[in-house]
């Protein structure tokens, strides 16, 4: 299996604070990789570095689309990273709340379509066809995450769990080869978490997308991931399969503190 994302020696400083310290991470084709760690370990900062929201202080991030050449992506703008084929969701939901559910997903198609101002004004054949394709494609994605019932509702009016799924659908609309999910199960009840578990597995199986996710729900993480990276204080402290991580004393210490030894 080839790697779709390779991070080497990534460091991110905020003033004097080193939020991410020399982290190496890789995601292979078709893998579900979890990134875990206590609060403030630098997981979301790492995500922001990958997706171009932050420019890392040092280190390399290389993305390799399946069947394509490797591309260095650190220092690119967020929209350029998305164009290459990495799409993300956010820890605190960032939907376009005054747009409809369908329109939210349609925004995801922006970087895969080309209509210009003149086309929009004249509504020529190309623009109309493209618009119809955008609607059809987005609707299919909504069916996939079971939100087709809410097509014309405002995104802000959706229940919490549905908003999370809509964010995933919106990210999928950009046709990524790697999906980055930032705490997708946060605030979900056990039933919703189980649905999410199935959804993520389905995305990987049916759409051939690799997944990197940050998550605190250990049951979900252990269930779903092929490999787990553990971070603490910006450093990477362990890598391995769920079974290896479960027994790793360093991880237990990071999560439970010193008392775990007793």
């Amino acid at each position: 299996m080839t790697a779709v994302l390779t991070i080497t020696g990534l460091t991110m400083d905020f003033g004097g604070l080193r939020a991410v310290d020399n982290v190496n991470l890789d995601v292979r084709q078709g893998e579900i990789v979890a990134l875990i760690g206590p609060n403030g370990a630098g997981k979301t900062t790492l995500f922001n570095c990958i997706t171009g929201i932050y420019k890392p202080t040092a280190g390399d991030i290389v993305a390799t689309p399946p069947g394509g050449p490797a591309k260095t992506i650190h220092g690119l703008k967020p929209n350029q990273v998305t164009e290459i084929g990495l799409a993300r969701t956010f820890q605190n939901i960032r939907l376009f709340s005054n747009m409809t559910v369908l329109e939210n997903v349609m925004i995801g198609r922006h970087c895969r379509t080309t209509s210009k101002i003149l086309g929009a004004v004249l509504r020529d054949g190309h623009t109309r066809r493209e618009e119809a394709e955008i609607v059809a494609f987005s609707y299919q994605l909504l069916e996939r995450v079971r939100l087709e019932r809410h097509v014309n509702d405002f995104a802000r009016n959706l229940p919490y769990g549905a908003q999370r799924r809509l964010e995933i659908a919106r990210a999928l609309a950009t046709e990524p080869f790697l999906l980055l999910l930032d705490e997708p199960a946060a605030g979900m009840n056990p039933h919703e978490t189980k649905e999410l578990d199935e959804l993520i597995s389905r995305i990987r199986a049916e759409m051939d997308i690799s997944i990197l996710l940050i998550e605190h729900d250990m049951k979900l993480v252990m269930n779903i991931s092929d490999r787990i990276f553990v971070m603490e204080y910006g450093k990477e402290i362990a890598v391995g399969t769920p079974l290896e991580i479960r027994g790793n004393p360093k991880v237990i210490e990071a999560y439970l503190g010193e008392e775990a030894h007793a």
Binding site: N79, A87, L95, I107, S115, T127
Partner: peptide, 28 residues
Amino acid sequence: RLRNSRIGRAWIALREDEIACQAMGVDK
């Protein structure tokens, strides 16, 4: 026509959430 086009949607998305809008591949 602009409002209901690809460009109009990008404007509205930019108004709603700039960071999410960029992360979804819209050139700010």
